[in-house]
Design a protein around this nucleic acid. Sequence first.
DNA 1: TATGAATTATTCATATATGAACTAATTATA
DNA 2: TATAATTAGTTCATATATGAATAATTCATA
Lengths: 145, 145
Amino acid sequence: MPKFLDSLPMILSRSLDRVMPSYRRLFQANDLTDQQWRVLRALWEKQHLTSAQISQITLLPPPSLVGILDRLEKKNLIGRLRSTEDRRHIHIIPTQKGRALMEHMMPMVESIHDDFMQRVTAAEWDEFNRILNKLSEPTKKRNLA
Amino acid sequence: MPKFLDSLPMILSRSLDRVMPSYRRLFQANDLTDQQWRVLRALWEKQHLTSAQISQITLLPPPSLVGILDRLEKKNLIGRLRSTEDRRHIHIIPTQKGRALMEHMMPMVESIHDDFMQRVTAAEWDEFNRILNKLSEPTKKRNLA
DNA sequence: TATGAATTATTCATATATGAACTAATTATA
DNA sequence: TATAATTAGTTCATATATGAATAATTCATA
């Protein structure tokens, strides 16, 4: 009984390792990293977001986000705009080039997603989400012995 | 319908982000990173493994493994031993100190695992694994348009 | 309204991920 | 058996993760 390989972290990591290459080929073909795409994808839903909002949506930690935004900005895919109301906030806005890239990639990204969805029934997908949520929903901190 | 947050990669990433802190507090209390623990955990099952075997078991990419092993070796938790039959292979072996640390941590790691398992029934856990495997099982390379 | 607390983005140090390339050792083949 | 192809571990360059700390700004409150 190799419990290690069946632990929750290893199961989730292994699945991620298996799922990501399908997406990554598309990202690389468009000169993007996984994380850079995540930021663009977040901006697809809403055109201007602050760094903190992007961090929350994409799950990218703020210190990582700084560099990711730097590189997206250098590629002229996004712009940074400091807010006038609250000068601590910086709005991230896709450029024309950024929007064009998003429009180009979105159908292919959705197609990959649909391919994965077709592997299971809608009921299975719901059940999967329900159980995974039970397994991983946030909780109080655990005491260490 | 924010399909992005419900995509397979984001769901898996979010769950990992929620699960890992429970473990990480224990790892940090013992001056280990997630990955360093993974290597020790792999050596728990079998005392001598080659780098390639560890990489496969732990899902750690070989270039990362080099540094991880370096740091474990520097902490005197493992040793590297070049094979005499095939001098390309390097056997990784836990030291006495490494074995002691594993013995100390294993019960707590298992306890954390058990806590997660108690969140779902055995049937749910099986169903979860079955669906996740369907979702993420390896496949042929996908054509890009 | 001065002053401490909270917030936002950032920097820093260290560790890891990713893909390409490289070295030494071994195996397969002409 | 010389030579090409493989294999194991590693190095390199670049990008990201993690946790602590910091600067600038705003908020709360005495």
